[in-house]
């Protein structure tokens, strides 16, 4: 289970530019570390973040081992319509986690 935290305003005026924040619990294990017995700790990272607004991807992030554990991102959206926002994180094996939020445009 990966906990996800989202910060999306519930409402916005039409054409207002809003800040969106998203964070997910994930170790982002680099593959460069070694364990107590010298063994390489295998890489385990989220490689892709996508955010959809009314079904359409408007922002994407491609993550590499240089992204810190428990990835945090903030970005902006121009609020044009009342619609659902879908946030999706996908790891290197294809497993994904998602969360949604509804933005009401007045």
């Amino acid at each position: 289970m990966s906990t996800i935290r989202l910060s999306v305003p519930e409402t916005a005026k039409k054409n207002e530019i809003i800040e969106i924040k998203a964070m997910i619990q994930h170790p982002m294990e680099t593959g460069y570390r070694r364990g107590m017995r010298g063994e390489v700790i295998e890489r385990d990272i989220i490689t892709l973040f996508e955010c959809r607004y009314d079904g359409e991807i408007f922002f994407e992030g491609e993550f590499h081992p240089g992204i810190a554990a428990n990835p945090f991102l903030s970005f902006y959206l121009k609020a044009t319509k009342t619609a659902e926002l879908v946030f999706r994180w996908t790891d290197q094996t294809g497993q994904s986690w998602s969360e949604t939020a509804t933005l009401t445009v007045t």
Binding site: I57, F72, L77
Partner: peptide, 17 residues
Amino acid sequence: SRYTLTPANGKAAISAR
């Protein structure tokens, strides 16, 4: 990391760790 943006972003600013 690499980020893909669109006009729908309205503003080209991001924060990460």
